[in-house]
């Protein structure tokens, strides 16, 4: 109760919460909210490149499709990629980090060396190579992003598990004969959960940005999928006249990523009293 009240008092967190909620609502209610729901797959060439107005609130694109409607449906893609890719990365990375942090043997060293190699290359660069190999499709974007993102989680969980390993309550649990699995699931995971939740939230934003970059490079969901990054890429041919074309999807990306970042920062303040706003580390 107290932390809920504190959450509502934190302005950054509240802003983040509102933006993310709006994104989810936009995705869920894309059809009723959109003015031209059919414009995701079909379009109207006679209405090409119309500036924003009464009929087309955010203008139309090169196919004559309503940008506002496409943005709403794009929210679905955005959430899908962010949630699924981040979840995969967490589901792969966290157990690896737990095992590597809990045991001290050659195997944990190997696990960490492997993730270090992945971390030695900028994520998006590896993701480009994988996405290019697999071909442009939404499931390939998800795969490319999760395969390149898990090492981040492995590192994070490894470091936290290692430092917990010497805590009295963990040693007590081990001394009382709890199995490693039990110690990890019942004692380690709850202690690091808040930090994972915070990072996952911020990670959503990072994943959305990375996915948008892939889309911009033509490696995302193929047309006519209303992918925000690709919409920006398409607009370039029609600059400077069709200024609205790139503006709307760019603002959408900006707001959504900002929303997740604010939410993550705010959650950190609430969930992790050790690090107050002053001592916060980026993510």
């Amino acid at each position: 109760m107290k932390s809920l009240r504190r959450m509502l008092r934190d302005r950054a967190l509240l802003t983040g919460l509102v933006i993310v909620t709006l994104l989810v609502l936009a995705a869920v209610f894309a059809s009723p909210l959109s003015t031209f729901p059919e414009h995701v797959t079909s379009f109207d060439p006679s209405q090409r490149l119309k500036p924003p107005g009464e009929r087309f609130w955010l203008g139309t694109d090169r196919m004559g499709a309503d940008i506002y409607s496409r943005l709403l449906f794009g929210a679905r893609l955005t959430i899908l990629v962010a949630v699924v890719a981040t979840t995969f990365a967490v589901v792969i990375g966290v157990p690896i980090g737990l095992v590597a942090g809990y045991y001290r043997n050659w195997f944990s060293d190997l696990l960490m060396r492997v993730s270090d190699v992945f971390l030695a290359v900028p994520q998006i660069v590896l993701a480009i190579a994988i996405a290019q190999t697999l071909g442009p499709a939404i499931q390939n974007v998800i795969l490319a992003l999760s395969v390149t993102y898990w090492p981040f989680w492995a590192r994070l969980v490894y470091a936290e598990t290692r430092s917990l390993r010497n805590e009295v309550f963990i040693e007590a649990a081990i001394a009382m004969g709890a199995s490693p699995l039990r110690v990890m699931v019942l004692h380690v995971v709850p202690s690091i959960a808040s930090s994972i939740i915070v990072r996952t939230t911020i990670g959503m934003g990072a994943t959305i940005l990375a996915a948008a970059s892939l889309g911009f490079l033509g490696l995302g969901a193929p047309p006519p999928a209303p992918e925000w990054g690709r919409m920006i890429a398409e607009s370039r041919e029609f600059l400077p006249d069709a200024w609205w074309y790139a503006t709307a999807p760019g603002v959408a990306i900006l707001l959504v990523v900002m929303g997740f970042n604010l939410l993550g920062d705010g959650l950190r303040d609430v969930l992790d009293p050790r690090i107050r706003r002053g001592g916060q580390r980026g993510g």
Partner: peptide
């Protein structure tokens, strides 16, 4: 906060 949330290619455009 905005700088970290902006897609670089969009800012470039």
């Amino acid at each position: 906060i905005s700088g970290l949330a902006m897609a670089a290619f969009w800012l470039a455009i």
